[in-house]
């Protein structure tokens, strides 16, 4: 099933959120406004607002209130992408030039900081200490996760536990927070808040593992860039970690990279083959699927509803997506 079909039940509300997103980043300074809009117009799955809204359906769904959380979560995601592009020195994102490429690093930093602050201000509209506590914890952990990702680049001694902790902070936490805050804003019961939070965490883990698999298996058309981009940057993900745990494979991989810190595309292609032959892709798919099953279990603890069905469909889509 396509994401668009799953989103159909939320079409009207999502269109409202889209308008709100545009209005929220309507800065006074034209460059700040254009840069913020530039990323917004490039699109995206809007998965975080969707999780906020669907989780809100388990309580008293009030769109004017929910929108503050939905828009804030997407803005936080956007702000982190703007800064990530400076970190990665990236030229393209979602088929469009990055802010740092279209303008420069300084414009990207100011835009990211502006969007981030705007998001926090929106959450204060709820006037709910719990919402601030949950979100601030997630943001702090995310930033620690990003620092650790840089620290762990080209660190061949890291283990699977390091990887899971990193992707939890990098991706799963914000998705988990989207679900939890949606439930909190709508006043869902504590038990429902907890199940939705856990659901988001498991989906987030599955999402990131799938993303990391796609970096090995995706085509240029699907990814918008050649496969192996993570390896090129020294990001060691589950498929390669699995391969390195197999007899002789670690040595082969280390031989390819030898002493060089930066790999060539040819070296990366060699490692891609080793990883594929080791069964690393298949293993990672199984782990991703295991997280999905855990996510489904959390959903089953919630009352049956069309929102629950939609959450399940999105989780399935995430696990099977090709881009």
């Amino acid at each position: 099933m396509k994401l668009k079909t799953i989103y159909a039940s939320l079409k009207k509300d999502l269109s409202f959120i889209e308008t709100e997103l545009e209005q929220t980043v309507d800065a006074h300074h034209p460059v700040l406004r254009d840069a913020s809009n530039h990323l917004l117009k490039a699109g995206g799955k809007r998965i975080r607002p969707v999780f906020v809204l669907l989780s809100g359906k388990f309580g008293n769904y009030n769109l004017p209130l929910m929108k503050n959380v939905a828009v804030a979560l997407e803005l936080i995601h956007m702000a982190s992408l703007v800064h990530d592009d400076v970190i990665d020195d990236a030229e393209m994102r979602r088929g469009a030039k990055t802010i740092k490429a279209k303008w420069d690093n300084r414009v990207a930093m100011y835009t990211g900081d502006y969007i981030f602050a705007r998001a926090i201000e929106l959450v204060t509209e709820l006037n709910d200490p719990t919402a601030n506590r949950i979100l601030s914890h997630a943001i702090l952990e995310m930033s620690v996760g990003e620092i650790e990702q840089i620290r762990d680049q080209f660190n061949w001694d890291q283990n699977v536990r390091d990887y899971f902790r990193r992707i939890k902070r990098k991706t799963a936490l914000l998705i988990s927070t989207s679900c939890e805050l949606g439930a909190v804003a709508a006043g869902a019961s504590k038990q429902e808040q907890l199940h939705l939070k856990q659901f988001g965490y498991y989906v987030g883990m599955s999402y990131q593992i799938t993303d990391d698999i796609l970096d090995y298996t995706g085509t240029v058309k699907q990814l918008g860039k050649p496969a192996g981009g993570d390896l090129l940057q020294g990001n060691i993900t589950l498929p390669v970690l699995y391969a390195m745990n197999q007899k002789n494979e670690k040595k082969k991989i280390m031989d390819v990279f030898s002493e060089e810190l930066h790999a060539s595309q040819e070296q990366v292609d060699q490692v891609l083959s080793i990883v594929k032959l080791s069964g690393g892709i298949e293993h990672s798919r199984q782990i991703s699927d295991r997280y999905l099953q855990k996510a489904f279990y959390e959903l089953e603890q919630l009352p049956a509803s069309s929102a629950r069905t939609s959450l399940k469909q999105i989780a399935e889509y995430i696990g099977k997506r090709k881009h």
Partner: peptide
């Protein structure tokens, strides 16, 4: 880049502990 983001997340985290919604809003503005 990440240090700036880290320090920024710390101010929010610290004020959230005090449940100081109003100052969080003032500083984000």
């Amino acid at each position: 880049v990440l240090a700036g983001d880290y320090f920024s997340s710390m101010y929010y985290h610290l004020l959230s502990k005090w449940e100081d919604n109003e100052l969080i809003r003032t500083l984000s503005e």
